[in-house]
Simulated scan of single mutants.
Amino acid sequence: MNKMRILLTGGGGMVGRNLLEHPDIGEFEMLAPRSSELDLRDYKAVERYLNTHQPDMVIHSAGKVGGIQANMREPVAFLLENLDIGRNIVWASRQAGIKRLINLGSSCMYPRNHNEPLREELVLKGEFEPTNEGYALAKVVTARLCEYITRENADYQYKSLIPCNIYGKHDKFDPVHSHLIPAIIYKVHLAKQRGDETVEIWGDGTARREFMYAGDLADALVQAVKRFDSMPALMNIGLGHDCSINEYYQAAADVMNYSGSFVHDLSKPVGMTRKLVSVERQQEWGWHAKQKLKTGIRETYQFFLMEKFQ
């Protein structure tokens, strides 16, 4: 029996690499071209690739990603690059006759300053967080394109998953480019190496975030492939609970045996006060994350050390 052939975009990124390391990935024939082999910004190149390789399914996880500093510094690139690659892979898949596609969105698609768990129907029900508006716009457009394609022809099932914030192995740790947890790991590691008595936190640290280990998202994606027909057309993937930024710093300090203290710079931007996705649809579908926070941070820190000192 032939294996299902799956094209994975973003195979060199954190989500893609964790998916390719999943213990069940050998059940599928995976195509995971790097950007040097397939430039997703080039529609004709994407079209040629799909027609040549004819995958049975596409998983779209590629994108220009970064933390709050990167999004504020490069809003044009975050809008245009994500818009181009999302439109190109989704529409080229439709034109190539590929019937199944899983698109990865982002919790940035949800309205800002919404303190209750973010339900899927809240997309486009309020203004975005200004610090990553361009990225959010591109993600919403791609998800809507998937929805419209299926609406026009139900033979084409193009579905979107909206993960909460992700961290883990293969993450970016430089604070110029990184998200919260890898930036925390980098800063606490540096403070420990230098013997610094304090580590700076942007804002008062009370803002709350939901961070899921990347290996858990990879597992959700594998289950989405295996149980594609039962998966909702739009579904959050998350933990269903969050922590304050102060708590993430303390968890990292505990794991890394850092005994210093934290100071707060109240002049720095912090983004949304809370961003927690609703996991009701996910629970009804029958999946939940398994990794505990400190275990995930420990494995991520070990990966950081291995990469840093290779």
Rank of each mutant, 00 (worst) to 15 (best):
P175F: 13
M14I: 02
I166Y: 02
K169V: 09
E81H: 14
I201C: 05
E120A: 03
N165K: 00
A70Q: 11
A62H: 00
P130E: 02
Q291H: 12
V123Y: 01
V46I: 04
R281E: 14
A233K: 12
R34V: 08
P117L: 14
R17T: 01
S178A: 15
G238H: 05
L80K: 09
N113M: 13
S230Q: 11
A77R: 15
F128D: 06
V123L: 02
V255I: 12
L20M: 07
A183W: 04
S160M: 08
W91S: 10
V277N: 02
M30A: 06
L40F: 02
H53K: 12
L137G: 01
E307Y: 00
E284N: 14
R144A: 14
Q282M: 13
P111A: 00
G97W: 11
V90L: 10
M256D: 11
E129C: 11
S178C: 12
V141D: 06
A154H: 13
M306Q: 08
L221V: 02
H170D: 06
Y248I: 09
F309S: 01
V277Q: 07
E152H: 14
P23S: 04
E280G: 02
E280C: 03
A77G: 12
H288T: 15
M72C: 08
G271C: 08
A251H: 09
F309L: 03
P75N: 10
E116M: 13
K187W: 14
R209W: 13
A253C: 07
K192N: 04
H264L: 06
A45I: 09
A191Y: 05
K64L: 15
V263C: 12
N2K: 15
I297V: 02
L104A: 08
N71L: 06
Q95S: 08
P269F: 10
G97C: 07
A220K: 07
Q157P: 04
S36G: 15
D39F: 06
E152D: 14
N2C: 15
E133L: 06
E81D: 15
L122F: 12
L217C: 00
K308N: 12
P111C: 03
E27D: 14
R144C: 09
L266W: 08
I245S: 08
Y258V: 06
D84W: 13
T131C: 08
L234H: 02
H22V: 05
Y213H: 03
L180G: 02
A289Q: 05
